[in-house]
């Protein structure tokens, strides 16, 4: 009973937030609605005993990524409201809605038709349940997925370097060279 109540409340929070992201006129409101959705998803993670992921969800997503979004919105000064008519693509709107509702109908029909959708073999990488998820996740991460884990560190370094290169202001010499080539 409590499970059902928690699920319904968190699901409503998620969906309202998601619709808010899409429908808000002001990008700042979109970002705040995104926080709402992320908190709802974190609650769903807790309800499924993924406590570590719930904490990471709040810290990384709501704490870092959304703050980054807000930084960029404030930095660029694009926080004025746009009318929805202008901020929606005109022609593609109905096609997109049709496509989205169609694909949603297919997925939901599949889930409902199959009933209990889980098949497959038992876990190899450690069973969830009695022990805490942090220990299992750490063991899985640093044994089975250790190469992928090391690769993510490389990915993060590349992302940082890429971001610095992208937003760097061109130096004078670069600008002169670009003008000489005629594409300044």
């Amino acid at each position: 009973m409590v499970d059902t109540f928690v699920f319904i409340v968190a699901a409503v929070v998620c969906l309202v937030g998601a619709l808010g992201v899409v429908l808000a006129r002001n990008p700042v409101h979109s970002a705040l609605m995104l926080v709402m959705t992320l908190f709802g998803v974190a609650v769903q993670f807790v309800a499924q005993e993924a406590h570590f992921l719930a904490a990471v969800q709040v810290i990384v997503y709501a704490g870092a990524i959304v703050v980054l979004f807000l930084f960029v919105i404030m930095l660029l000064g694009v926080d004025r409201a746009q009318s929805l008519e202008l901020s929606f693509l005109p022609v593609q709107r109905w096609a997109a809605l049709l496509f989205a509702s169609g694909s949603l109908a297919v997925v939901v029909a599949l889930i409902l038709a199959v009933g209990e959708p889980v098949t497959g073999v038992e876990a190899m990488g450690g069973a969830l349940g009695s022990t805490d998820d942090v220990r299992l996740l750490a063991r899985s991460l640093f044994s089975d997925y250790v190469y992928a884990f090391e690769l993510t560190s490389l990915l993060l370094v590349i992302a940082v370097i890429g971001a610095v290169v992208l937003v760097r202001k061109p130096r004078e010499t670069d600008a002169v060279v670009a003008e000489d080539r005629g594409d300044a």
């Binding site: 998620c14 969906l15 998601a18 619709l19 992201v21 899409v22 808000a24 990008p27 979109s30 959705t37 998803v41 979004f69 960029v72 919105i73 694009v78 746009q82 202008l86 901020s87 929606f88 693509l89 593609q92 709107r93 997109a96 809605l97 496509f99 989205a100 509702s101 694909s103 949603l104 997925v107």
Partner: peptide, 17 residues
């Protein structure tokens, strides 16, 4: 959530959104 996000991606014009 996936479909709402996908719809928003298709119909919004603001790159941040």
């Amino acid at each position: 959530l996936f479909v709402i996000g996908g719809t928003g991606l298709l119909i919004r014009r603001n790159p941040l959104v």
